[in-house]
């Protein structure tokens, strides 16, 4: 069943003061099935961040459409966007984006509180999520008191607590050391195994090699894609590396 469908997506940034417009996306099309784990790769300036922002409803496309569960995001009013985001999407960012005025507990609970859930429900939801990410002991701490890996796990907990249809991750391992990064990727794989749909933007081959499918974006279009099939992480890693070499050298 197709969960996310992206059709001919275009985004053009019109320059200020009559500068030349920049075409960040020039017709991107792909789809994501429910339960899939997709990585999107591309170099800086390839348009992958623009794509993610549009999928996250933080930005609107200038052409094409995005459908989540068959519903066109363009039909959402600005005022309904925040609620839509809260109910359907979970986010994990490179820079964690935890609020330094909240403890980890409050950071994780924030989306639920914004959704108007009552205090009793909050505790019930928090416990399993925190336990599965191994941060139960850290909940009373502030973001600046814990390590980067712990911060990112708290951020994942915040993304998951609303039970989102789609988990969007933007370079989730970018600010982590290698050990924390591989821990996080194991968590993602486990979540995907439990049925969570994940879309991750990254330029780390290691991160992408954990996904089931890898899309390559260059100059604003989907240039290529790879499937894991029955292969191991290592095999996918090799395929990705080959593809990137090919992309760079112009085949």
């Amino acid at each position: 069943m197709t969960m996310l469908e992206v059709r001919d997506l275009e985004k053009t940034y019109s320059g200020r003061f009559g500068a030349n417009p920049v075409r960040a996306l020039k017709g991107v099309s792909f789809s994501v099935e429910a339960g899939e784990y997709v990585a999107i790769m591309g170099e800086s300036g390839s348009g992958k961040t623009t794509l993610l922002n549009i999928l996250a409803t933080l930005d609107r496309p200038t052409g094409g459409s995005v459908l989540l569960d068959g519903r066109d995001l363009a039909g959402l009013k600005d005022s309904a966007l925040a609620a839509f985001r809260r109910e359907n999407l979970g986010f994990v960012f490179q820079e964690f984006n935890l609020l330094d005025t909240f403890t980890l507990r409050d950071n994780i609970l924030l989306p639920l509180v914004l959704g108007g859930k009552n205090a009793d429900e909050l505790g019930k939801r928090l416990e399993p999520v925190a336990a599965s990410l191994g941060i139960t002991e850290l909940l009373h701490k502030y973001p600046w008191e814990v390590s980067g890996g712990q911060k990112q796990r708290a951020a994942v907990a915040r993304a998951l607590i609303t039970r989102p249809r789609l988990l969007l991750a933007d370079e989730p391992t970018g600010a982590l050391d290698s050990q924390s990064a591989s821990e996080l990727l194991r968590v993602f794989s486990r979540l995907n195994g439990e049925g969570q749909t994940i879309l991750m933007v990254t330029h780390s081959i290691d991160a992408a090699s954990h996904a089931r499918r890898v899309l390559f974006i260059r100059d604003g279009v989907v240039f290529h894609q790879l499937y894991r099939g029955e292969g191991s992480n290592e095999a996918l890693y090799q395929k990705i590396a080959d593809t990137l070499t090919m992309l760079r050298t112009g085949r």
Binding site: A82, L99, L114, R158
Partner: peptide, 15 residues
């Protein structure tokens, strides 16, 4: 920065 995060997490601009 704080308010940008809040908007990303699903707070409406009005809120």
């Amino acid at each position: 920065a704080r308010f940008q995060i809040m908007e990303k997490v699903g707070m409406e601009p009005k809120e």
